[in-house]
């Protein structure tokens, strides 16, 4: 599974720390997500999509 978190973060002018605070996780988790080293839970994926005012499938791309 790939994701476009970095792209959306740049679009919304958010740092990794800002996004981490918004979705209540550690900054490390955002780093791992962006590097595709971790697949988030459905709840976290939903929270990230909500933070970017988008749908889950716009941010997370399933192969």
């Amino acid at each position: 599974m790939n994701n476009r978190i970095k792209e959306f973060r740049a679009r919304y002018n958010l740092t990794q720390e800002d996004l981490a605070k918004k979705v209540d996780v550690r900054r490390e988790t955002i780093v791992f997500l962006e590097k595709n080293k971790y697949n988030p839970s459905l709840k976290l994926a939903h929270d990230i999509a909500t933070a970017f005012d988008s749908k889950i499938e716009e941010i997370f791309l399933f192969d």
Partner: peptide
């Protein structure tokens, strides 16, 4: 350092 940044000490990844 996580606590100082206002982040949770533990999250789903940890």
């Amino acid at each position: 350092s996580s606590a100082k940044r206002g982040e949770p000490a533990e999250d789903e990844l940890s």
